[in-house]
Amino acid sequence: MSVTVYHNPKCSTSTKVVALLREAGHDPKVVEYLKTGWTREQLQDLTARSDTDLKGLLRKMGTPAEELGLLEADVSDDALLSAMVEHPILVNRPIVDGPKGVVLARPIEKALTVV
């Protein structure tokens, strides 16, 4: 099975994860999600196979999360999904999808746990 990295090339952590996987002998498929966007189904699948939920994937810094009310304790998964699809920057990165599961690779070494 291949390895996919949902990547933002402007993010140093994301760039380091791609390099780490390549140095470990993997040839990851790199998806620049700010260009391709997300679907609800894609985000639901990634979270279902990961060790986190949608709130765990929510990026707060440098995003409209607070203005959109997404930091409130009672925000629903449906509201998070809708916002993440509309504003791809709300999804934290890098997400690594490998044969052993899905992780938000922070710290970067977590990427190696799913390959």
Score class of each variant (00 low, 15 high):
V5I: 06
D53C: 04
G101L: 11
M61R: 15
H87L: 00
S76I: 11
V96R: 07
D77I: 02
A48K: 11
W38T: 10
E41P: 05
V102A: 12
V96W: 13
S76E: 08
N8F: 06
L80W: 01
D53A: 14
R22T: 15
E41C: 05
V91D: 03
H26A: 11
G56E: 06
L20R: 15
V18M: 07
Y33C: 02
V103A: 13
V91W: 01
M61C: 09
P107K: 08
S50C: 11
V102D: 13
E23D: 14
P9G: 03
E41K: 14
T13G: 07
E72I: 14
V31H: 01
G56R: 03
A83N: 05
A105L: 05
T13Y: 02
P88E: 02
C11F: 02
K16I: 14
E32H: 04
L21D: 10
K110H: 10
H26T: 11
E66I: 11
A73V: 12
A111E: 01
D74W: 03
V18D: 06
G37D: 02
C11L: 03
A83F: 09
D53H: 00
V3S: 02
T4W: 10
S76H: 02
V85W: 00
D78E: 14
L34F: 08
D51R: 13
W38H: 00
V102H: 08
K60M: 15
V31Q: 10
K55Y: 08
D51E: 07
A105G: 05
V30R: 09
N8L: 07
R59Y: 01
T36G: 11
P88N: 00
L71D: 00
K55I: 10
L21K: 12
E72A: 07
L81Y: 00
I95E: 07
T39W: 00
V3M: 13
N92D: 07
L43G: 04
S12F: 04
L57R: 05
L104M: 01
V85I: 09
L21I: 10
L71M: 05
A48Q: 09
V18N: 08
L112E: 13
P99H: 15
L81C: 06
L80A: 07
G25I: 08
N8G: 05
A79Y: 08
K16C: 12
M84E: 02
E23Q: 11
G101I: 03
P64L: 12
L70H: 05
S76R: 04
V96A: 09
A19M: 15
Y6S: 09
D77S: 03
V102L: 11
G69Y: 01
I108A: 15
R49G: 08
E109L: 11
R106Y: 01
T36P: 10
G62Y: 04
V17C: 07
G37Q: 06
A83S: 00
T47C: 12
S50H: 10
K100L: 06
P9L: 09
A105E: 11
L58C: 08
Q42Y: 02
L58R: 02
E32F: 08
A24I: 09
G25E: 01
V18C: 05
D77L: 04
G25R: 03
V96T: 07
V96H: 06
V96D: 10
V30P: 03
L112S: 06
V17Q: 02
R93P: 02
A79F: 01
K29Y: 12
H26P: 15
I108N: 14
A83D: 07
R40Y: 00
E32S: 13
R49K: 13
A24Y: 08
